[in-house]
Design a protein around this nucleic acid. Structure first.
Length: 561
RNA sequence: UGUCCGAUGGUGUAAUGGUAGCACUGCAGAUUUUGGUUCUGCCUGUCAAGGUUCGAAUCCUUGUCGGACAACCA
């Protein structure tokens, strides 16, 4: 049955290719992918798509997936990022094949191959400065012209390249170029640079190397050395593919060949995704670091309260194709709500408290109210919370002069207090500022939940917290960082002009039911009727801090828009 | 005035020459001691024009629109 279900499910274009390759016994019908981040920044939700794809294909086809750091540029890369990337991949729930790998593991082999290319007359040392080489490359619509050093003798090239390796020249003095075709309509084939001189220590190879390979020269061969079969990358590398194949053609002679396949990167509405823009947000202090809960980074989403499972489901839902796409950020929110709805314990929390006094409830009396922990999970059981004469309810749940469809509390109106009694608003008191200070109600002792004696139909049920036992907390309400659907998509305006000034709202005087006094960072809850919240890493006993992951669907708020 | 890639409801994604489906969103209703969840129903789509074919989202031609490419970045 499972097999027939699998057959029915349609394939994305990558799965189609893979299944075709398996059928043809290409590369011994192996499937081996890799996730190849450059360790120069934090992973974001776009990387998550790639991670889920690469690891997902390996899982689905009983293959393997490597984690390989593309560390060919020592001036940009740091060990710190290696660690954060590993942590993020693991948190997402994936296990890479063996040890993590590095392109720098292959520097020796890459060098030998470069020498081989020189000997074949397919590579040469160019002495020209960067600007000149750049000029000679032409433009997409005009062919380039050949470097005067292009026809150097093999021996000279060999000697020069070795001298480059030795460190005889300053940065930028020379480069090694592949001899391909300066007239190619593909810019990347116009004698691309293979090696540049970089007198910089590498985070793994230290001072061993003075020259470092370029991405194009390193990536395909790294894939080859690792036995990668399907090298999945984003669309912008499409034009690099002929070069990817060119190096492999010149260098190797086996039947096994890795194949580069490109897919469209993820774009999310109301979000920026480029490393540069993300860095700008951090550097300018718009957010508080890479793991700010408003950031689309894995670390940010995690701190925000997203579950790994919800991100994986999201990645499944958005699919994979080659056309440019912008996913509605609402789909991400839907995915996390769906997961949290199933797993998050329900608790009572009042974010904007106003005192409610039940005038006819005996002073000093307390009773225990039993509340279901999670209606979606009967086995999660129930708990008791105290109820007494003085409670807090949400300010929004009371209106002096309510509109017709307002199902909550108002003068002379009745509501049920969740799990407890039906109360009727008798009067209210304002403070000097004209804000509601206290609401006075009466209760009907026979309406207690579960007793069944009396169950009047009331339209609304409110959450509440017992005043004396409530614990205080700070709650951080997050909203989208940008007000514009495509903040980075404007030619004339910078994304930063569309920043949402209300992306963070801090509630300082929240009242929570007492069981929340003892929670740990990343613990997740549904604050009944409000949304999903998780404990922030800033939280301490006695100084609780919660982040709003996402609000509940709110048809009432929608009606009032 | 180059090369390559792409175009299916509002947003994504299927249909691989044979009934345009699914998800999200939106709308309407049912259930509900969360205005949550769940359930039901509905709206909305093949970029255009030709051609091939009994039959085209799918194949061909032309056009239109969008994207990528000119780091010693990845």
């Amino acid at each position: 049955m499972e097999a027939s279900e699998k057959e029915k499910k349609s394939l994305n274009f990558i799965e189609t290719i893979i299944e075709e390759d398996i059928k043809n016994h290409k590369n011994d019908a192996r499937v081996h992918t890799r996730f190849p981040p450059e360790p120069n920044g934090y992973l974001h939700i776009g990387h998550a798509k790639s991670i889920c794809l690469n690891f997902g294909m390996a899982e689905k086809y009983n293959g393997k997936c490597n984690l390989r750091f593309d560390d060919t540029n020592p001036t940009k890369e740091e060990m710190e990022y290696v660690d954060s990337i590993k942590a993020d991949v693991q948190w997402l729930g994936f296990e890479w094949n063996g040890q993590e790998l590095f392109a720098s593991d292959y520097f020796d082999q890459l060098y030998d191959w470069a020498v081989m290319l020189i000997k074949k007359g397919k590579a040469y040392v160019d002495d020209q400065p960067q600007e000149l080489i750049s000029q000679q490359r032409g433009t997409p619509t005009r062919p380039g012209i050949e470097s005067p050093f292009r026809s150097r003798s093999i021996d000279e090239n060999l000697a020069l390249f070795e001298a480059m390796k030795r460190g005889d020249f300053p940065n930028g003095a020379k480069v090694l170029r592949a001899k391909v075709d300066m007239a190619s309509p593909n810019m990347h084939m116009r004698d691309p640079v293979m090696y540049r001189i970089l007198n910089a220590p590498h985070h793994r190879t230290g001072d061993t190397w003075k020259i470092y390979p370029m991405y194009d020269y390193a990536h395909g061969q790294s894939d080859y050395l690792e036995g990668i079969t399907h090298s999945l990358c984003t669309l912008e590398f499409e034009v690099h593919r002929p070069l990817y194949d060119w190096f492999l053609d010149e260098l190797i002679d086996t039947e096994y060949r890795p194949r580069q396949i490109e897919f469209a990167r993820l774009n999310l509405s109301y979000t920026v995704m480029s490393k540069r823009k993300l860095l700008e947000l951090v550097k300018n202090g718009v957010v508080n670091g890479w793991d700010d809960p408003r950031m689309p980074t894995i670390a940010g989403l995690r701190r925000r309260g997203y579950t790994a499972a919800s991100i994986r489901t999201f990645a499944d839902r958005i699919g994979v194709a080659k056309r440019d796409n912008t996913i509605d950020v609402g789909l991400l929110e839907f995915s996390v709500r769906e997961d949290l709805n199933n797993i998050a314990p329900r608790v009572m929390a009042v974010l904007d408290p106003v005192k409610l006094i039940i005038s006819n409830y005996p002073e000093g009396q307390t009773e225990q109210i039993e509340l279901i922990n999670n209606p979606e999970q009967p086995e999660a059981g129930s708990r008791n919370i105290p109820f007494s004469r003085e409670l807090y309810i949400e300010r929004d749940d009371f209106m002096i002069d309510p509109p017709k469809k307002f199902f909550r509390l108002a003068p002379d109106k009745e509501v049920r207090l969740k799990g407890a009694y039906v109360v009727r608003c008798e009067s209210y008191e304002l403070d000097d500022a004209g804000e509601v200070k206290t609401i006075y109600c009466s209760y009907d002792a026979e309406t207690r939940s579960g007793t069944g004696t009396k169950n009047p139909k009331v339209k609304g049920t409110l959450h509440w917290v017992e005043a004396n036992t409530a614990v205080d907390a700070e709650v951080r309400l997050y909203d989208r960082l940008f007000n514009d659907e495509d903040p980075a998509g404007h030619k004339e305006k910078d994304a930063m002009e569309f920043l949402n000034p209300d992306s963070l709202q801090i509630k300082t005087y929240c009242k929570l039911e007492r069981m929340l006094a003892d929670v740990q960072p990343e613990d997740k809850f549904q604050f009944q009727r409000i949304g999903y919240f998780c404990v922030d890493k800033d939280s301490k006993a006695g100084q609780l801090v919660f982040n709003r992951t996402v609000s509940l669907r709110d048809t009432w708020a929608k009606m009032n828009q």
